[in-house]
Design a protein around this nucleic acid. Sequence first.
DNA 1: TCAATAGTTCAAATACAATTGAACTATTCC
DNA 2: GGAATAGTTCAATTGTATTTGAACTATTGA
Lengths: 97, 97
Amino acid sequence: MRQLFHPTTDQFNLSTILNALGDPTRLQIIKNLADKSEKTCACCNVDLPKSALSHHFKVLREAGLINVRIEGKQRFLSIRYEELEEKFPGLLQVILR
Amino acid sequence: MRQLFHPTTDQFNLSTILNALGDPTRLQIIKNLADKSEKTCACCNVDLPKSALSHHFKVLREAGLINVRIEGKQRFLSIRYEELEEKFPGLLQVILR
DNA sequence: TCAATAGTTCAAATACAATTGAACTATTCC
DNA sequence: GGAATAGTTCAATTGTATTTGAACTATTGA
């Protein structure tokens, strides 16, 4: 796996995004990423087996909420601030406040 | 049934609200109620049997998104604008834009 | 009182989502 | 090459949501 699918902003769908955020685990992950720094999967402080984490990261990524950058053995996660702000201005502010 | 449960603003929970909004049918209902007028259940223009509609209205009501006022045979639905704005400022604007 | 209307509740079916561990891939470092 | 690390994928299980029709409650109007 060298390339991961990330939707473009015009593929963003509000229903999909809200559905992704509607799960408490994923909302927590987003909150943990809120300080704008990139984090590895393990740094998201969620107490679940890695396969479950992997699933939630995929849901968030495919909804357009996070970017996953592959570097060596690790994946670096970050919120797609600018693009989300462009498409749904104010949404992240509400979620992360 | 004379009284329906409606959470108070301090019972509002972001995860519950996002989960309620994460369903396409319910998001559509909220959008249909966006013009701030009260509507009966039948006026929400969702093509589902009444039992399914009743279910979705209940999820929205119990999350705190809508108010259901009983008047005679009918229920009048409306979005809880002020209270939602108080607790999650900007959320409805993002959703309804 | 009787029928019509508006919606709820129930139980059952179906569908979808979350969770798990094991096996797997890819990368790094010795 | 071999072991360790970081994460993915798979298949199976469990759990939760949605959908449905039928039966029900409550209200209105004839």
